[in-house]
Simulated assay, not measured.
Amino acid sequence: MVKSFVVLVFTFCASLVWADQVTVKDVLGRDVTFNAPAQRVIVGFYPEDYMAIGTEAAYDKVVGVSRYIWEARSANWEMYVKHRPSLQDIPAIGRVDTQTFSVEKVVSLNPDVLVLADWQYKGLGTDIERLESAGIKVIVVDYNAQTLERHIKSTELIGVITGQEKRAAAIAADYKNTVEMVNKRLADANLPAPKVYTEFGASGVQELGFTFGKNMWGAISTMAGGDNISAPFVEWWGKLNPEQVIASNPDVIVITGYETGKGTDSMLMGQGVDDTEARKRLEGYKNRLGWSTISAVQNNRLYGAYHGACRTILDAAMIEFYAKAMYPEVFSDLDPEQAYLDFYKKYLPATPEGIFTLAL
C-alpha cells in the first residue's frame, strides 16, 4: 500500500515537473493557455500528421479521435492498426460535416486539449463555447488551406502540444525548404505558367468529379507554378461545367484517387494499388467525351496522384510532383514518389507500399 502511494506521488510530481503552462496563438490568432505537453488529447483531424510530428508515443495520450478520416484511407488505417492495434480502441467522437460530432462524448473523455481543423472549428459554431465552458482547451490547426504559413504554424502547434518542438521545427524547415527550392527554380527559369486542371477521380470517367480552387490541390498546383483553370470558377472545391474544362484547354491534367472508388473506372491510387491498374484507370480518361481536343490529352500529359497525400505536412512531395509534371526539364532531378516514402521512413513507424504518383 505504502509502495503504491509512493509511486502515485512520484508520478504526480513528475507530471508537474514535465508539464509547463504555455500560451500559444493558433492558426486563427486565438490565444490558448494550457499545460504542455498535454496529457489527454483529442485529435479532431490530421491524425497521421499528429503522429509524424508528435512521434508514435504521442498516441499514448490521445483519448479520442475523429477516426473516419483515417479509416477512409482503409489500407493506410489497416497498416497502422497492424503496427499499433491499440489505435482501434481509441474512442471516436463523430464527424462535424455530417453533424454526428458529439460534444457530450468529448466532454466525457475529459481531454486537456481538443485539436480541431479550421473548418471543424467554424462548423461547430456555438458548440465551441460548450466545450470551452467544460474546461477543454481548443486549438485550431489547418493544413487544408495549403499555405506555407499555416502548414508551418500547424506543425509548430502540434510540436508544442506533444512536447516535440525540435522535431516539429525540423519537419517545418524541410517543408519550407521544398517550397523555397521550387520557387527559386521557377524564378530562375522564368517560363510561362502552364494551365493545369486537377480532378478527384472517385466517380470515374463518365462523371466529372470535384476540382479545387484556392485550397488543397488547387493551392498545391499554384504553389508549384501552375495556372489553375478551376480557380476563377471554384472557390474551395466543386465541379466545373464539362464544357469549361474543354474550353480552358489545360496543358496538364492530374486525376487523384484513393485506394477505392465508386466504380470500375474510378481512379485508383495509394497503398496496395498496383502500378499497372492505376495506369489503366488513368488511360481511361483519354476517352472521356470531348477530351480528345485538350492539349494535355494530345500530348499525353496526364498524371495520377494519391488523394490522401494533400492537406498534410507530408505533401511537400506533392508540390515536387506538380512542379515536375508542369516543368519536366526544370525539375528533372526530383523523385516525388521517393520523397513521399522517405518522409514515412524518417518520421513515421510504418511505410506504405503502392503507387502514389503516376505519369503516363
Rank of each mutant, 00 (worst) to 15 (best):
K3Q: 13
L8K: 13
V9P: 01
T11K: 11
T11H: 10
V24I: 13
D26G: 06
T33P: 00
F34Y: 11
F34P: 00
P37E: 06
V41M: 08
I42R: 01
P47Q: 07
E48R: 14
V63C: 04
A75L: 09
A75D: 10
W77P: 00
M79C: 05
R84Q: 14
L87T: 06
I93M: 01
D97A: 13
D97V: 14
S102L: 02
E104I: 08
D112T: 04
Q120R: 00
Y121E: 07
T126K: 15
L131F: 09
A134F: 06
I139T: 03
V140Y: 08
A145V: 11
Q146W: 02
E149G: 10
E149S: 14
E156F: 11
L157W: 06
V160L: 09
V160W: 05
A170L: 12
D174E: 15
M181Y: 15
V182N: 01
D188G: 03
N190G: 07
P192M: 12
P194Y: 08
P194Q: 06
T198L: 15
E199V: 13
A202V: 12
S203G: 09
E207F: 11
G209A: 08
A219G: 02
T222D: 12
F233T: 10
V234M: 05
K239C: 09
E243P: 00
V252Q: 01
I253Y: 03
V254E: 02
I255Q: 03
T256R: 02
T256C: 04
S266L: 12
M267Y: 12
L268H: 06
M269E: 06
G270W: 07
Q271Y: 14
R279P: 01
L282S: 02
E283T: 13
G284D: 02
R288V: 13
S292E: 14
V297D: 07
G304W: 04
A317H: 07
I319A: 05
A323L: 02
V330K: 04
D335E: 07
E337L: 02
E337G: 08
A339Y: 06
L341H: 03
Y347E: 05
L348Y: 14
L348F: 15
L348N: 11
A350D: 03
F356I: 07
